[in-house]
Design a binder for these strands. Structure first.
Lengths: 226, 226
DNA sequence: ACTCTATTCAAGTAGATACTTGAATACCAC
DNA sequence: GTGGTATTCAAGTATCTACTTGAATAGAGT
């Protein structure tokens, strides 16, 4: 007890948790799983990797317990093991945002410039929803909406938005949201609506942050108990 | 913009932050730096590695900006770049504590059993300090005390404690604290005092958590402005 | 039973990582 | 300038990692 070997093993164990997040592909997996559980093949398509490689990444996330799995028929659904994993992923992005210089350029290259894009914080959106002032649009792929969304939001995946613009009520501002601050869907939706002359804004971050803040959510159209 | 290559680069950048914490030795370095800045050779001694190896680990922590350095004469002092790094390290330990099964055994092997060891939370300690009820003992090495400690604490490094037990006032409970939950110093101090029949307890976590909670600290005997 | 699909396993390869060793650099004191 | 100390750099080696490919497993439908 108290020796160097024991100390090394203890810190190696802490490090093993950080290590599995130390791959861009696994980070993408965690980012997607923060939206809700997913089977392997969907994750593979999402991160642009083979199923075999995705499966192996998932095994690595499984070992230190960052994700859990449940079998349903022939599919295996993976999910994050708990809210502390969501907080860890948020802490990683926060440090990157504050201290990695080239992040801004990379984000701009992926997301495009956000100048002229109206942004609402979570609390601003919550207030305006209470005032009945806005329509909230969930522009993520529909399975993510089904597994959980902001209470009162309407699902219009960004790929279907162009054909469904006439469904939107006019007079009220549309606020789009998606997976988080570094997710493109809401940006694309707001740009599309602006191009049509509709008043639109995006939520600053995304669904996982809304959940973490304890704001009201629902799943499959039912209000969640929490 | 919006392509797979850009997305990969963005997530590789997030991952690069997690990756540098994915080594036990670098995790130890971060844990020590959470106590305050340190020159390379002290860090090397602390983590039981050569100076060259420690220096190389520090370069890796430097690249994504987790640590910063300042030169003073012939020494170079490294420090964590900001509070978000402390939160990240806390998030890693939290996930490990919740989801890594073997952590309990490893912690017990390093720290020894904690049964019979009285533990106070931060708020309990803050209350009892306000009541003037306790003596607070900082049992970390003295340089760490000097670079910042709980306001009102007395420095008695655990290696000197045996020879200085008579300095302690009797009648009041002694509460020892050190670097955090997984730090041995406070445990050793409490065991030593218990063996002498003195009423003693340890703070549940340590100095970085006290700072993060916004509780009062001081450095070099002067009250800090924050 | 056979077939289809989702997932995992196993082996192979190119590239990265941790630690060592010995030399180079940078500052300070004289 | 010289000598001394703290730190970094560069090269070498053993080990690990990411991704690929092709085969194995496991459940569902017929």
């Amino acid at each position: 007890m108290g020796g160097r070997a024991e100390k090394d093993m203890l810190f190696d164990t802490f490090a093993s948790v950080a290590k599995v997040l130390g791959s861009g592909r696994r980070a993408e997996i965690v980012d997607v799983l923060a939206q809700g559980e997913r089977p392997v093949d969907e994750l593979a398509r999402e991160i642009g990797q083979t199923v075999a490689n995705t499966s192996q990444h998932l095994q690595q996330l499984l070992r230190p317990g960052l994700v859990s799995a449940r079998r349903q028929g022939t599919r295996i659904y993976y999910r994050l093991s708990g809210p502390s994993v969501v907080r860890l992923w948020a802490a990683v992005r926060q440090v990157a945002a504050e201290h990695v210089e080239e992040l801004d350029e990379l984000a701009a290259a992926y997301l495009g410039t956000r100048s002229g894009l109206d942004v609402l914080t979570r609390s601003e959106l919550a207030e305006r929803m209470a005032a009945g002032d806005v329509v909230v649009l969930d522009v993520r792929p529909e399975p993510e909406f089904r597994s959980g969304h902001i209470a009162g939001a309407v699902s219009v995946p960004v790929r279907e938005l162009a054909g469904r613009l006439k469904e939107l009520p006019d007079g009220r501002t549309v606020v789009a949201y998606c997976r988080g601050q570094y997710c493109v869907f809401a940006d694309e939706a707001v740009r599309m609506m602006h191009a049509r002359g509709l008043p639109a804004a995006r939520l600053e971050d995304g669904y996982p942050e809304w959940v973490a803040a304890g704001l009201p959510v629902e799943a499959d159209g039912l209000h969640s108990p929490a």
